[in-house]
Amino acid sequence: MALDAATFAYPGARTPALLDVSLAIEAGTVTGVTGAVGAGTSTLLLVAGGFAPRLTGGALSGRRDIATNRIGIVFATPWTQLTGLATTVRAEVAFGPASLGRPRGSVLAACGAALRDLGVEHLADRDPASLSGGELQRVVVASVLAMEPELLVLDDPAAELDPAGADALYALLPELARRGTAVLVATPDSERLARTAERVLVMEGGRVTRDGPPAAVLDDTDVARIARAAGCPAPYPLDVAALVARVVR
């Protein structure tokens, strides 16, 4: 996936939501996006995933190359992402591959693997309506993974999860990258981004203002804030391990 000088405006908007963004996402990598509300992170995901302007309307200028049509997207709230057709979690997760008309065995295999990845096999026979928000969000991610996407974009996917669930989800992203998926995740959660992404984009006003490894571009994790307050020179260590390494050295 590559963008070259991409500018995108929603229909009826006076100012573009995305301004002159150039960017390439490789298979097998996790790229993080962060920024304040309204900075354009969600829009970048929609454009990078090929959903804008196809499904949202609006106008895109610049170049965009997307080398795959197997693209998955995950949002923060689970309720809007369910089909509402399934009375079991298994049926919900199987919906995607079944829609493609794949043979029954292959559908069930993809469904089983996705349930395992998210650690929700034990929920397979439950009614989605009976699950908690956190459980449901993991089912939603499993449903998208069952489509075996080559490009996966996630918009603050752990907003509804408890800390342990969020950790588990972010730990899965590098694993998906190892299997060859290109992962693009947007979140204000710098700590987890620092741990999972090998590259982070910081956005402001629709532009990418910083781009590089987390240690070079992030400076607002708790540890980084403490390090800065303590007079540590930049780049700041982002987590405890990095801080310890710096101090020991």
Partner: peptide, 12 residues
Amino acid sequence: DEQALALDVRGG
């Protein structure tokens, strides 16, 4: 929009 996108990526 979110509902339509979610259905779209799952073969809707």
